[in-house]
C-alpha cells in the first residue's frame, strides 16, 4: 500500500460520507442521481463477491464492508425513506443506465483476465464503475445549479480516481509484475469523464463563486 492508494481510498470514503451527510442533514437527495448510486451498489456487490473467500488484509475487508453497506444505505434512503424520496429529481434522472450495465457485461465477457465467474464479475465491476458517474454528471448538467455538498461529493469522487492513477504509476515503477491493464485503462476513462466537472469546479473555486455548470 502506498500513500497515493491510501489517500485515494480515503477521498473515496469521504465522498460517500459527504453524500450521507447531505442526505441526513438536509433530508433531501435533490441533485443526486439514484441511478448512479444503484450502479455503484452493483459495482461493489459484483467486485466484492470474494469478500469471504479471498483474504488480502483486515483493511481491505473492512473497507469492502463499509463500501457495500454505505452505498446500500444511500440507495435505501433514496428509495425507501418517506421524506428523502420526495426530493428525488426523477424527471432529471433519465439516463438509460441499463445500457451501461449491458455494455459492461458484454465487455467483461469479451475482455477479462481469466474466464471464471469471479474474474468476469471483477472485470464487469471495473467497467461499470468507469461509467457509473454518467447519470450523476448528466443530472447536474441538466439542473445547472449544484449545491455545495453535491459539488464536494463529485469533487472527492474525482480526486479518488486521480489518486488511483498516481498509485498505478507508483506501482508500475516499484513492483516487478504489476498486472493492471484492465483496471488502468478503465480508470483513465473514468477519470477523463470528470475533466469537464473539474474545470468548472476549479473556476468556481478561483472566482469564489457558486458552482454552476453550463447548459
Amino acid at each position: 500500500m502506498n500513500i497515493f492508494r491510501f489517500a485515494g481510498d480515503m477521498t473515496h470514503l469521504i465522498s460517500i460520507l459527504v453524500l450521507l451527510l447531505k442526505i441526513y442533514a438536509t433530508k433531501s437527495c435533490s441533485g443526486i442521481s439514484r441511478k448512479t448510486q444503484e450502479l455503484y451498489a452493483l459495482v461493489f456487490l459484483a467486485r466484492y463477491v470474494d469478500i469471504f473467500t479471498e483474504f488480502i488484509s483486515v483493511y481491505n475487508t473492512i473497507m469492502k464492508i463499509v463500501f457495500i453497506a454505505s452505498t446500500l444505505a444511500i440507495v435505501w434512503c433514496m428509495r425507501g425513506h418517506r421524506v428523502v424520496r420526495r426530493s428525488y429529481d426523477k424527471e432529471l434522472d433519465t439516463f438509460r443506465h441499463y445500457f451501461l450495465i449491458a455494455a459492461s457485461l458484454v465487455l467483461a465477457l469479451l475482455v477479462h483476465e481469466k474466464f471464471t465467474f469471479q474474474e468476469i464479475l471483477w472485470a464487469f465491476s471495473i467497467y461499470l464503475e468507469a461509467v457509473a458517474i454518467l447519470p450523476q454528471l448528466v443530472l447536474l448538467q441538466r439542473s445547472g445549479n449544484v449545491d455545495n455538498l453535491t459539488g464536494q461529493y463529485v469533487f472527492f469522487l474525482g480526486a479518488y480516481r486521480g489518486l488511483y492513477i498516481l498509485n498505478w504509476i507508483y506501482r508500475y515503477f516499484t513492483e516487478p509484475h504489476f498486472s493492471r491493464w484492465i483496471a488502468c485503462v478503465s480508470g483513465l476513462v473514468q477519470t477523463a469523464l470528470y475533466a469537464d466537472f473539474f474545470y468548472y469546479y476549479f473556476l468556481s473555486w478561483k472566482n469564489n463563486a457558486k458552482l454552476k455548470l453550463p447548459a
Partner: peptide, 10 residues
C-alpha cells in the same frame, strides 16, 4: 490474487 495484481485494490 497474484502478487502485484490490481485485484488487491478496492
Amino acid at each position: 490474487p497474484p502478487k502485484g495484481s490490481s485485484h488487491d485494490e478496492l
